[in-house]
C-alpha cells in the first residue's frame, strides 16, 4: 500500500530524489543569487532573491558534500540551465578566451574544496566544465561545436541545456562548490 502511494506521489508532483532503499552518500544542495553590478565601480555583489527582472543574471551555486567516511570517486555534478533562462554569454566567452590564450583562467572557474583539505582549485584542462546542447544526453568540452547538414558549427551560449563538472575524488567529509551563471531573457 505504501509503495503504491509513493508511486502516486511521484506521478502527481514529478519529483524524484530516491534511490530505493539507500541513503544519499553525497548530499547536494543548490542555491541561487542575483548578480548585481554597481554601474560606477563595476563591483559585483551577490544578492539572495527569489525574484528577478528580465535581463537579470542569476548565479547558481551547487555544493556537494561527501557524508561518508570513505572517498567518493567520479563525482559528476550536473547543473541544468532552467527554462527560460540562457547561459550567460560572457561566462562562456571567458572560458573561450582562456582556451584561446587571450585571458587568464576565469576567476569563477574554480572548484572550492572545503573541509580538511580546503583549497580553491582552478578548473583548467580536463577539469573545465562540459556543456550539453541536447538536453543532457551528451556533453562536450568547450569550444562546443555541432554538425548540421554536414557542416560543423560553433555552439552559442543560448544553445546550452546543461553544464557538468567531474570531480575525480571527494574525500570523506569534503565539500565542493561550483557555480555558473544564467541570464533571464
Amino acid at each position: 500500500m505504501l509503495k503504491k502511494w509513493l508511486g502516486l506521489f511521484f506521478i502527481v508532483f514529478g519529483v524524484v530524489a530516491v534511490s530505493l532503499g539507500s541513503y544519499a552518500q553525497v548530499k547536494i544542495h543548490m542555491s541561487s543569487y542575483l548578480v548585481q553590478v554597481d554601474k560606477k565601480t563595476g563591483k559585483e555583489t551577490l544578492v539572495t532573491s527569489n525574484t528577478a527582472y528580465p535581463g537579470a543574471v542569476i548565479q547558481y551555486v551547487i555544493d556537494a558534500t561527501n557524508t561518508t567516511d570513505k572517498a567518493i570517486q567520479g563525482l559528476v555534478l550536473v547543473g541544468p540551465i532552467p527554462a527560460p533562462t540562457k547561459l550567460l554569454p560572457a561566462w562562456y566567452q571567458a572560458i573561450l578566451n582562456f582556451l584561446a590564450g587571450k585571458a587568464e583562467a576565469p576567476a569563477f572557474c574554480v572548484l572550492i574544496k572545503q573541509g580538511a583539505a580546503a583549497q580553491t582549485v582552478p578548473m583548467t584542462g580536463h577539469k573545465l566544465p562540459e556543456f550539453s546542447i541536447d538536453g543532457g544526453k551528451t556533453y562536450s568540452r568547450p569550444p562546443v561545436s555541432y554538425v548540421v547538414n554536414g557542416k560543423t558549427k560553433q555552439a552559442t551560449p543560448d544553445m546550452f541545456t546543461h553544464i557538468r563538472w567531474t570531480i575525480d575524488t571527494l574525500g570523506p567529509g569534503e565539500k565542493v562548490e561550483i557555480s555558473y551563471r544564467v541570464v533571464v531573457p
Binding site: I28, M30, I58, Y60, A64, L75, L77, T85
Partner: peptide
C-alpha cells in the same frame, strides 16, 4: 525559473 542540480557518483 525552477532549477535542480544532480550528482552522480
Amino acid at each position: 525559473i525552477v532549477n535542480q542540480a544532480t550528482a552522480t557518483y
